[in-house]
């Protein structure tokens, strides 16, 4: 991330394990500056850092509106460094940066939601896909088998970052369920995958579609919160 050379060091654990070290994509300094949320008490709804485990004010609103919370697991806090990361990866389009968190994301998905779950990435609009040439969510979680149930409505450009919170929340349903796959949703366990949990709007819109189509459980995992 900071372009500094990564010092490969050999610690005792590695010497004892007789294995090749995992390829490192981050230097220790950058690693320290990403805040791993799983080390802290979190909101049971969105996964943000809290003083003690609880449900935050925003999530109570979602609870009233949708009755079920997504129990989002976010790996890292959306801080300055994470913002920089997304600038490079998503907005400049440096696809290789998906490698930095790919292993960790796959691991948490498989650990928390192993068998019996469908992995549904939040889709990208056609226009954004044409410019970026990749779906950043699928890139981050690549290696998992996705079930692509959702499409962005044609008239709806999914450019969240240009909308403010109010507009984002007020916005109407941006997704449609791919009609040929409706049967797969019924009574299924759905794990929604996204890059950033911002207000929750995107994920709850997706969740609503799943619920209406008869999904049993709906949860979510994101890289950042």
């Amino acid at each position: 991330m900071c372009q500094s050379r990564i010092n490969e060091y050999f610690d005792l654990e590695w010497v004892l394990s007789f294995q090749r070290p995992k390829k490192k994509f981050l230097c220790q300094n950058c690693k320290n500056n990403f805040v791993a949320l799983l080390n802290y008490p979190r909101c049971l709804g969105c996964g943000r850092k809290m003083n003690e485990e609880d449900i935050c004010v925003d999530c109570r609103k979602w609870e009233r509106e949708y009755s079920d919370l997504l129990g989002n697991i976010a790996l890292y806090e959306y801080n300055e460094l994470m913002k920089k990361y997304f600038e490079r990866f998503k907005f400049m389009g440096d696809y290789y940066y998906s490698n930095i968190f790919n292993e960790e994301l796959k691991e948490i998905v498989q650990k928390e939601y192993g068998k019996g779950w469908l992995y549904v990435p939040v889709p990208l609009s056609k226009q954004s896909f044409q410019i970026r040439m990749f779906n950043q969510v699928e890139a981050l979680f690549s290696g998992l088998t996705f079930t692509e149930l959702l499409t962005v409505r044609n008239d709806e450009k999914r450019q969240q970052s240009k909308l403010n919170r109010r507009e984002r929340l007020r916005r109407r349903q941006p997704f449609i369920l791919n009609s040929d796959r409706r049967v797969e949703v019924e009574a299924a366990n759905i794990l929604l995958l996204d890059d950033i949990y911002t207000t929750g709007g995107t994920l709850y819109h997706a969740a609503k579609i799943m619920k209406d189509a008869g999904a049993k459980k709906i949860k979510s995992i994101t890289l950042a919160r």
Partner: peptide, 19 residues
């Protein structure tokens, strides 16, 4: 390092000027 999943390539070295 330069691979895109749609079988294209990009240059990461000058990406700050637009990919």
């Amino acid at each position: 390092r330069a691979f895109l999943p749609n079988q294209q390539y990009y240059c990461p070295a000058c990406i700050m000027l637009g990919r």
